[in-house]
Design a binder for these strands. Sequence first.
DNA 1: CCTACAATCTCCAGCGACTGGAGGATCAAG
DNA 2: CTTGATCCTCCAGTCGCTGGAGATTGTAGG
Lengths: 140, 140
Amino acid sequence: MRDIAIGVLSRETGVKVPTIRFYEEIGLMRAPARTGSNRRIYGDDDIRRLKFIRHARDLGFEVDDIRTLISLTERPQAPCAEADSIARRHLATVERRLAQLGALRDELARMVGDCCHGQVCDCRVIEVLADHGQCAGGHG
Amino acid sequence: MRDIAIGVLSRETGVKVPTIRFYEEIGLMRAPARTGSNRRIYGDDDIRRLKFIRHARDLGFEVDDIRTLISLTERPQAPCAEADSIARRHLATVERRLAQLGALRDELARMVGDCCHGQVCDCRVIEVLADHGQCAGGHG
DNA sequence: CCTACAATCTCCAGCGACTGGAGGATCAAG
DNA sequence: CTTGATCCTCCAGTCGCTGGAGATTGTAGG
């Protein structure tokens, strides 16, 4: 078990130092041991854990979900139904966002494409924004 | 010009009352006239403006961009190049997000699909999250 | 006219997920 | 011994809202 300083942990995981401390504060990372001069000492476990957290965040999982996922990794005999359902729920969210974003892109593309590059008073961009009726968008 | 109370404005635009006040605070909505008893009085212009704001927010434009777009609508003779460039920039952002989210969906779908619904120790969801190498994800 | 109750007002704290600065202590290298 | 990097804690700010407290005002019914 190497002794890893927070800066090294940061470099190895790509998570900024203040963010690591923040993760400790909110209980995603456990409070590590300290040196005599009060500096945090991490080990390889912490690198793994932080990479897990970071990866999950990159995938857009919320902190609460990550907390659950981590507690699952600590009970490896537990059925994985819960992990599965978190992932499924998240997948559904992502697919919803994807659909919304696709519609949004189409609308933006149309706005930009139709713009005759003249004056604002004739600008499709402004017009589309001003007239809600032109768009099929939901939101949420 | 009807006299419209903030609650009516809220109902007509789908923007919550505190949000309207917030928009006033940050200068998206102008400060309206008041009644003798200090209540905000809006007009039809304000409905239009708030709908514009809401629509732009729904489309994911940031408040700063909306501020610019609004100031453009108030100079209708100005060339629309700026509105166009804001929309283009936003379109590019949306397309980037869309691509990322697509990759994310694929990864999540794979995670969920590969999960054998057994124990956590064999769970693909957990495994994929733990092993960053398995994923092609960038982030930002 | 009185009573409810709804709507409004201001102020301010909180959300999520960080980010970064101030001001001080400590460490490693030259 | 000095320099500069790193670390510490604390706290305020980011963005775009959201909602509660506590006071006031408007409106409808009895």
